[in-house]
C-alpha cells in the first residue's frame, strides 16, 4: 500500500519535532533526524525482533517502556530516548551480556570491530558489576571457511534472520532456552556438515561480535554489512 499524504505523522522525539510516515518505527524516525538510539539485535535490512531491549524508549502516557525498533510512530507521540532510567537499564543490559558468556575482548578476533564493545564504551562501562558466569561453551571450526565461537555470542539472532530472510537457507536457528540457549546450524550438526549452508558468509558479516568469523582473517577485519540495505531495497523494488 502506498502511503497517502494523510499517513504522515508528526511527533516529538527528545523534544524535537519530527515527521514520519505511519509505517515507520520510532527508531527510523529518530535516526533520520540524526538522533541516536542504541541497538544490538536490530540491523537495517533484517526483520526486527525487539529482543535486545537496548532501544527501549519512554513514551508519554504509557507506563511501559517500548522498543523503538518495532514501535510505530503515532500522531502526537512524545518520545524520550535518553533518561537516567533508560541509561541505567541500558548499562545493566550490557553488563548482563558481558557477564553472561566469555567475552575476553583482548584475545577476541573482533576486538576493535565489535558492536558490543562499542556499546559498552559508549555507555561508560568501565567494569561489570554482575559476577561473570564463565559458562563452558564450545567452538565449531568444522566449516571450511568459518568458525562459530559460542563464547562470544550474544544471541541477537542476526545470523538466524539473515540466513532465513535474505539467503533463504535457514541454516541457523536457536536451540534450548533461557540461559542455555545456543545458535545452531541445521539440527545441531557441525557447521561443516550442514546440508543447507550455502557458505555465503552473510551470517559472519552481520554478527555483531566475534562469535562468527572467517578463518585466516581473524585479525581485526571489520565486517561489511552494506549489502543488506541494498538487497532489501532491490527486493522491495524501491
Amino acid at each position: 500500500m502506498t502511503p497517502a499524504v494523510s499517513d504522515v505523522k508528526t511527533l516529538q522525539i527528545d523534544g524535537i519535532d519530527v515527521s514520519a510516515q505511519a509505517d515507520q518505527t520510532i527508531l527510523d524516525a529518530a535516526r533520520e533526524k540524526g538522533l541516536s538510539i542504541p541497538t544490538l539485535c536490530h540491523l537495517d535490512g533484517l526483520g526486527d525482533v525487539g529482543a535486545c531491549r537496548l532501544c527501549l524508549v519512554e513514551i508519554k502516557g504509557t507506563s511501559k517502556l517500548l522498543p523503538a525498533c518495532v514501535t510505530r510512530v503515532e500522531e502526537g507521540m512524545e518520545v524520550t530516548t535518553q533518561s537516567e532510567r533508560l541509561l541505567k537499564y541500558r548499562r545493566m543490559t550490557l553488563e548482563l551480556l558481558f557477564a553472561e558468556r566469555n567475552h575476553v575482548c583482548s584475545v577476541c578476533v573482533a576486538n576493535g570491530h565489535c558492536d558490543l564493545q562499542v556499546l559498552g564504551q559508549a555507555h561508560g562501562l568501565t567494569h561489570v558489576q554482575f559476577p561473570y558466569r564463565y559458562p563452558k561453551l564450545p567452538m565449531d571450526a568444522s566449516h571450511d571457511r568459518f568458525v562459530v565461537d559460542h563464547n562470544r555470542c550474544v544471541l541477537c539472532t542476526r545470523c538466524v534472520r539473515v540466513c532465513d530472510e535474505v539467503e533463504g537457507a535457514h541454516t541457523w536457528d536457536v536451540m534450548s532456552r533461557g540461559i542455555g540457549s545456543m545458535v545452531i546450524t541445521d539440527l545441531h550438526q557441525p557447521w561443516g556438515e550442514s546440508d543447507t549452508c550455502t557458505s555465503c558468509g552473510k551470517c559472519v558479516q552481520v554478527c555483531p561480535t566475534g562469535a562468527l568469523f572467517e578463518k585466516g582473517k581473524a585479525r581485526l577485519v571489520a565486517k561489511s554489512r552494506d549489502f543488506l540495505p541494498y538487497l532489501a531495497m532491490m527486493r522491495e523494488g524501491k
Binding site: 557477564a99 559476577p131 544471541l155 539472532t157
Partner: peptide, 12 residues
C-alpha cells in the same frame, strides 16, 4: 532466552 533481561537477568 530471547530477550537479555529475562535470559541473563533471571540467572543472575
Amino acid at each position: 532466552g530471547k530477550c537479555i533481561p529475562c535470559r541473563a537477568g533471571t540467572a543472575q
